[in-house]
């Protein structure tokens, strides 16, 4: 009898296994991180509690501040571009025409591949003096220094473009998905009222795309702010630390003897991610009301 009762109520607790797994491998370490971030643990000897000194150190550490700048600039470049290009691609590929699915597959293809391998691939192309692009350009008679990766500004631009190139397919697919949920009648109605393409886009398509926009904006913010592999492969954070992101900094601090400090940096990164995510969620909520 008891067993039957249990069976009849099982559906209410079906989220528990997922939650337990998540608790052990995510939430518990997260809380532990907070504890570790208040120590000077170096990875092997005993840790001492040092209060918030790690956080104070962070904000007087010019390398760390530079890494925040790099990470934020990368995200500021990458997230909007991903969304804009993804949306434009999706609008182009939403229409019926021959070869539609082929082009979709091609555009999505780079997103399938590990960013690390992708970074190395682009290094073949972009390496100054020896890369494919340099060789082609100098063959074509263009005198060019090809020093794209050797200066902080251009290197960051290259990183952003490579990232956008790789993941534009991902955003595009999500937008395509959103576009398919919009029923043709909506467009017809708009057409009847004599609205042009841009007016329809602004007042019909975009508002109805909000769920997709939400997913894309948030995943792109998170992804861009925790960028890691592509930088490792393309510039290794260099020259110097000019393109080092916070994620790489965390890894390197672990590899050095700054383990406690590295968790403090990780928590700071968390807050850096949280702020724009919450702002964009708020903004989109307001847009939902207006629409």
């Amino acid at each position: 009898m008891k067993q039957k009762k249990l069976r009849n109520n099982l559906h209410k607790v079906m989220a528990v296994p997922a939650f337990i797994l998540f608790f052990i491998f995510f939430i518990y370490p997260l809380f532990q991180s907070i504890g570790l971030s208040l120590t000077n643990w170096n990875g092997f000897s005993k840790a001492t509690f040092i209060g918030i000194r790690n956080f104070i150190t962070f904000f007087s550490d010019s390398r760390a501040l530079n890494d925040i700048k790099v990470t934020v600039l990368f995200a500021l470049g990458s997230a909007p571009l991903l969304n804009i290009f993804g949306l434009v691609y999706a609008l182009l590929l939403d229409k019926e025409f021959k070869g539609k699915s082929l082009v979709r597959v091609i555009v999505y293809l780079p997103a399938v591949i590990s960013p690390l391998i992708m970074g190395y691939l682009w290094y073949f192309i972009l390496q100054p003096q020896r890369g494919v692009l340099f060789t082609v350009l100098s063959h074509a008679g263009w005198v060019i220094s090809g020093n794209w990766l050797g200066k902080s500004g251009p290197a960051l631009v290259v990183l952003i473009l490579v990232n956008v190139w790789q993941f534009v397919g991902m955003t595009m697919i999500i937008y395509l998905a959103g576009l398919q949920t919009i029923s043709p009648e909506m467009y017809e109605a708009s057409d009847m009222e004599g609205a042009g393409y841009w007016t329809t886009l602004r007042y019909v398509t975009l508002p109805l795309l909000l769920p997709s926009i939400k997913i894309n904006v948030i995943t792109n913010i998170i992804g861009s702010l925790s960028v890691f592999e592509i930088i490792i492969a393309l510039t290794d954070g260099g020259p110097g630390y000019a393109t080092e992101s916070l994620s790489i900094y965390i890894l390197r601090m672990v590899h050095g003897s700054f383990t406690g400090y590295s968790t403090a940096v990780a928590l700071i990164l968390f807050f850096i991610i949280l702020i724009p995510v919450f702002i964009s969620l708020k903004v989109m909520k307001r847009m939902e009301y207006e629409a």
Partner: peptide, 19 residues
Amino acid sequence: FLLCMMIPGIINTVALYTL
């Protein structure tokens, strides 16, 4: 879950490592 969606995995790495 929704809140933790915003947290990239790398943040946990060190603590996870000790675990």
